[in-house]
Simulated assay, not measured.
Amino acid sequence: MNKFQQWFNKLSLAQQKKALLIFCLLFAAFLVCSIRYQQLSMNTGSIQQPRIKIDTLKNR
């Protein structure tokens, strides 16, 4: 972390803004990808639902 701070502080103000913008865009892209992957894995997952016996009402 210390090396990163030294590197970041050596940059000019415009370069620091670009570096932060690139970091934020990468973070947002990874966040969107992880949310889409989670939805995809939830949609393809198999959820077993309990079986309801309908015959019990007919036999009464």
Rank of each mutant, 00 (worst) to 15 (best):
residue 27 F to M: 11
residue 28 A to M: 12
residue 21 L to Y: 04
residue 47 I to C: 01
residue 39 Q to P: 02
residue 59 N to W: 09
residue 35 I to E: 10
residue 44 T to W: 06
residue 35 I to A: 13
residue 52 I to M: 04
residue 50 P to L: 06
residue 1 M to W: 00
residue 9 N to G: 11
residue 37 Y to R: 06
residue 11 L to I: 08
residue 22 I to E: 00
residue 23 F to C: 00
residue 56 T to I: 14
residue 57 L to W: 12
residue 13 L to V: 08
residue 15 Q to W: 00
residue 25 L to R: 08
residue 33 C to T: 15
residue 47 I to T: 06
residue 30 F to W: 14
residue 32 V to K: 07
residue 10 K to G: 10
residue 37 Y to I: 09
residue 18 K to E: 12
residue 31 L to V: 03
residue 17 K to N: 13
residue 51 R to E: 14
residue 51 R to F: 08
residue 11 L to D: 10
residue 60 R to P: 01
residue 41 S to L: 05
residue 16 Q to P: 00
residue 58 K to D: 01
residue 29 A to S: 13
residue 20 L to V: 10
residue 25 L to F: 08
residue 4 F to D: 03
residue 58 K to T: 02
residue 2 N to T: 07
residue 33 C to P: 08
residue 59 N to E: 13
residue 38 Q to S: 15
residue 29 A to L: 15
residue 7 W to Q: 05
residue 9 N to E: 14
residue 58 K to R: 06
residue 22 I to M: 00
residue 10 K to V: 06
residue 37 Y to F: 05
residue 1 M to G: 03
residue 52 I to D: 02
residue 34 S to L: 08
residue 44 T to L: 12
residue 13 L to F: 07
residue 46 S to T: 05
residue 5 Q to H: 13
residue 12 S to T: 13
residue 17 K to S: 14
residue 4 F to Y: 05
residue 46 S to E: 07
residue 54 I to A: 12
residue 45 G to E: 14
residue 25 L to S: 12
residue 25 L to C: 11
residue 56 T to W: 12
residue 27 F to G: 05
residue 25 L to G: 09
residue 32 V to T: 09
residue 17 K to I: 14
residue 4 F to E: 02
residue 37 Y to W: 05
residue 24 C to F: 08
residue 39 Q to V: 12
residue 29 A to Q: 05
residue 52 I to C: 01
residue 37 Y to A: 13
residue 60 R to W: 00
residue 1 M to F: 04
residue 33 C to G: 15
residue 1 M to I: 01
residue 24 C to V: 07
residue 58 K to S: 06
residue 41 S to I: 10
residue 36 R to G: 06
residue 27 F to A: 05
residue 18 K to L: 11
residue 38 Q to W: 14
residue 21 L to C: 02
residue 37 Y to G: 04
residue 41 S to Q: 09
residue 54 I to N: 12
residue 18 K to Y: 03
residue 10 K to T: 08
residue 27 F to P: 02
residue 51 R to T: 11
residue 35 I to Y: 10
residue 39 Q to W: 09
residue 47 I to E: 03
residue 6 Q to I: 09
residue 18 K to Q: 10
residue 41 S to Y: 02
residue 33 C to L: 15
